[in-house]
């Protein structure tokens, strides 16, 4: 039983590490701030979740605490990416758009007129 848990733990830790590396690679390759957030948030969320879950399997005494951390990461990571993107847009950081689809622009323009 313990060896199975160990193997599972190492499995999840390695998966997490792979996704974290892919996320770093994504941040390097993407063309602008918003697409970098895309790559960064997703892989860092699953990477960190899987890594910490694996640690919980390796150390069964910590398992419940690691579960709480996993849930906390799943809730807080997307919120931070939303706050970063919104803040960047509000300070007029233009997104890289291939086809020029930008529905959010109208909202921002309306606000400036009202002010």
């Amino acid at each position: 039983m313990e060896t199975i848990l160990n193997y599972l733990g190492y499995f999840f830790v390695s998966i997490g590490a792979v996704f974290l590396v892919l996320g770093a690679f994504g941040i390097l390759r993407m063309p602008d701030f918003y697409t970098r957030i895309q790559a960064g948030t997703k892989s860092s969320t699953l990477g960190a979740m899987s890594f910490i879950f694996g640690v919980g399997l390796l150390e069964p005494a910590w398992f419940i605490k690691t579960l709480v951390i996993v849930v906390f990461i799943a809730i807080s990571n997307p919120i931070s990416s939303h706050a970063l993107a919104r803040g960047a847009y509000k300070s007029h950081h233009q997104p890289y758009l291939k086809d020029g689809v930008d529905a959010y622009k109208e909202v921002e323009n309306q606000k400036e007129v009202k002010l």
């Binding site: 993407m30 063309p31 930008d102």
Partner: peptide
């Protein structure tokens, strides 16, 4: 995650971003 990994590992970076 697999979706982002696939995009990142494709040399031509096939994206068409927009809001």
């Amino acid at each position: 995650n697999f979706h982002v990994a696939k995009i990142v590992l494709t040399p031509s970076l096939p994206i068409n971003p927009g809001i």
